[in-house]
Each structure stands twice: as C-alpha cells, then as structure tokens.
C-alpha cells in the first residue's frame, strides 16, 4: 500500500521484546507512521480515548493480555477487549496476533458484524506474511481463514443474498443495497466477508491479474453457494 503521511498504528503486546520486534517491522514498512504502544487492556483503552479525535488507522493486538500492569496475561482479557473495541469503534481496522488464534472462534459473530478490516496473524507467520495481514487490515479486508473450522464454510443469509443478487441478477452494489434495504457501504462490507470465506484475497488475485468479483463468483460456484 502506498505510504500515508499521517498513518497512525497502535501496537498492543505485553512482551517488551515482541512489542519491539513488531514496531521495528512496522517502522520498516511504514517509516512515517506514528506508532503508539500499549501493554495492558487498560492502556489500550486510555490510548484510544486520548486519540478519540484522530483514531489509529490500525490496531495490532496480541490476544494474551493483562488487564492492568501486574496482572497475568490471559487470552480471555484480550477477547473481552476485542469485543469492546469492535462494539465501540465499529470501523476500526484490527490485526490480531496470537499463538492460539482459534480462541477467536468464540467471537466470530462479532467479527462478522465488524465493519472495519479484521485480519488474524498467527505468531508463527513469517514477517512478510505478517505485513501482508497488516496491509489487508489497513485496507478494510477481512481475513479469518485461520480460525475457520476444517473445510466447513459458514455463511450468513445476507451474504448469500448479495451473491445471488450480484451473480443471478447481475446487480451493482448500489442496486443490491436498494434491494436489501441496506447501505451501499454495508454491501461492500458483505463482499469483504464473502471474499474472506471464499478465500479470495486481493494480493494473489492482483498478481494473477484477475478481477476480484469474477474470482469470487467462480469460488462461490465451486463451493455450491450459487448454482
């Protein structure tokens, strides 16, 4: 992604070393970005409150966090924080780092509803892959492939409607929005979710030079979501 002058990223991790590593990585990728840090749930909320007027473009979050300094780090606390963040800032872009990303399954419905980018990065990922996830999140893309159950494909009725309206009736987003009685923005949000479950991600497609909507249609037919 092209470097933005006023990019602001909040990095949350309770381990100094990991925090430092992540910051280094991000600094290299986005030299002009303003990087904020927080090590506890409490600190994250303070940071966001302090930057309420100009929220960070992205929050890179470790799931295992202490509530406040001195507490032991727990995935439970991170999940709670994530819930609150998604509830309070519905368009905030998020990248969740964790050694155990499966814990996120529990808040899948909230992730589905979340309007901002949401990517999951296992801590075992390479730096390059990690940066891709960050980039996707910054672009409002959802990537939750890693927390999916087996080969199971889970879809919301609304998303299925978007697919049907788009590919059976050839409607544009605006027309789909009208038909579904939602905003065009919501329809676009649905598309990112659909693309996530169909594992259609921009980078790969761009390289192939394929149209992302067409790719989505092909995958949807493959999966039997549309005939």
């Amino acid at each position: 992604m092209s470097e933005s002058e006023n990019l602001k990223i909040l990095v949350v991790d309770d381990h100094e070393v990991v925090l430092g590593g992540t910051i280094d990585l991000l600094k290299r990728q986005y030299p002009h970005a303003e990087i904020l840090t927080a090590q506890t749930v409490e600190a994250v909320q303070q940071q966001l409150k302090a930057n309420a007027a100009n929220l960070p473009n992205l929050v890179v979050l470790d799931l295992s966090l202490p509530e406040k300094i001195g507490d032991t780090a727990q995935a439970e606390a991170g999940i709670r924080l994530l819930r609150t963040l998604m509830h309070d800032y519905p368009t905030l872009n998020l990248t969740v780092q964790s050694t155990y990303v499966k814990a996120l399954v529990r808040i899948k419905p909230e992730i589905d509803k979340h309007g901002g980018g949401f990517t999951v990065a296992d801590k075992g990922l390479s730096s390059k892959e990690m940066l891709v996830r960050v980039d996707w999140a910054l672009n409002g893309i959802t990537h939750t492939k890693d927390i999916r159950r087996g080969r199971m494909l889970e879809i919301k009725p609304d998303w299925l409607n978007v697919l049907k309206l788009a590919f059976y009736e050839g409607l544009q987003d605006r027309a789909i929005a009208e038909r579904m009685n939602v905003s065009e923005r919501t329809v676009r949000h649905y598309w990112t979710k659909i693309q996530d479950i169909l594992e259609v991600y921009p980078e790969e497609d761009k390289q192939d030079g394929k149209n992302i909507r067409i790719q989505t249609e092909i995958r949807a037919r493959e999966e039997g979501l549309i005939d």
Partner: peptide, 9 residues
C-alpha cells in the same frame, strides 16, 4: 460437518 456449507444467523 467438515465439508458442510453452513448458513447461520
């Protein structure tokens, strides 16, 4: 379940 397409809401 592994290969199912699930619509849930």
């Amino acid at each position: 379940f592994e290969a199912l397409k699930v619509t849930y809401d």
